[in-house]
Design a protein around this nucleic acid. Sequence first.
DNA 1: GCATGATCATGC
DNA 2: GCATGATCATGC
Length: 488
Amino acid sequence: MGKKLKALAENMDMKVSGKKSQAGDAWESWFGVNKNSEAEADLPEAGVELKMTGVINTKNGPSAKERLVLNIINYIEEYDKSFKTSSFWKKNRYMELGFYNYDKDVNWLDWQVIKAALFTYPEKDLLIIKNDWEIIHSYIRQGRAHELSEGITMYLAACTKGASSKTVRNQHPSLPNNTPQAKQRAYSLKNKYMTYIIREFIFGTALEPNIRIEPFSENEIFEPEGEYYSGESIISDISILEKQSFEEYIIEQLQKFKGMKQSDLASKYKIPKNGKGEYPKSINAMLASRMLGIHGNLEKSEEFFKANITVKTIHVTKKGRIKENMSFPAFKSKELVQEEWETSTLRNMFDSSKFFFFIFQENNNGEYIFRGGKFWTMPEQDLDTKVKNAWLATIQTYREGVQLTYLSKQKIVKNNLLSQRDKQIISVRPHAQKSSYIANNSNADELPTPANWVNKPDSFSDRWMTKQCFWLNNDYVLEQIQGVLGNH
DNA sequence: GCATGATCATGC
DNA sequence: GCATGATCATGC
């Protein structure tokens, strides 16, 4: 039998525990620690921090319910610290992690702690985490704490933490007077990083000397099955990370391929052609993987998976334009209009995603030449200005009712959703297998407000339109990759 | 030539 | 069957 949280919470003072922190408070009380906000680790003699974290079951096996949120970053105190003297290292070097099965339909007191682990960072991860800390610290040093986002780092991130987005903190007094206050943020281990740890070492069978699994329950609720990452790693020799960061290493690895033709790379890596003698549509994504020594999907390689890096290939035409806009998953407009910008799916996605752009440019002979790779995260100032406005405008259009006009000659339906001409970084366009304005069709999206139709065909519904998604405008992406294209 | 709506190809 | 990445086709 697994220990239920109510057994752990027997001696806990329920009155001082907030709704969101109950599981963690119960974990601390089990170890005889009262709720506090000390900078010290919870068990000071041992230097061990106590953390409780939820696990959910997905079709690929157990996953972290959320990122593991650590201590709040004091931009003033952290300013003069080094990694070894940082509040992150002091408080979170060793953690006693309790993993409970999160179930929203069950009272929290009945959640079970199914595994516990005395955790410190695997050696290779620690090198990446050190570099992540240095990146966060450089923002603090430069008085740019207001520009922090989760996507700028790999495993250790600065996530927002506060009652609302209006919870802000001052930056260091020695910085210029016009340095703005910054959103309150905490160190955190990314959701995908925790998922990897959970599947590989906590519920999986792989051994990691820095993670000691402690018996807590004989009850195995989670079956770690299904493929979540390919088993391939990019970095096998950790001494690489002692000399340079992960990103520097990747960019350097790609140097030797710069200027090579797509066709030469395809034959070098023996990419097969289809029946029509053409390369598959995903040819560039396949080449991206192969150049980095990965045979499967690059996003599923160890480091890309743990850091939640999205790989995007980019085609630049001979005239120096990007051929296509970049698509994102289709949304449900009824859910979209219920969201608030600060916690919206779109904002979360851009704030927490790191992208890896993989760039090919067409030459005058119509051949695609590899130009290089670039890691990219959307700058916070773009996100909270133009993208925010674009998002708000989209919601307003949906609330007012989308204007739809059927053009019988072309058999297409025009709409008044955000266009690329609006120059707001993102736009809204269809994303479905087929267009559909038919109720309950799998390619259609149900609208929150009936559409305002012009020339509606009888068979079309006024509440359903082809599924749409946000697209990142190609002119914006082109500005972001200028450094890679250089003079070409 | 480019923006926009539409659609293809692939993998799970 | 559907999500996702990639691309096509049309007309202003």
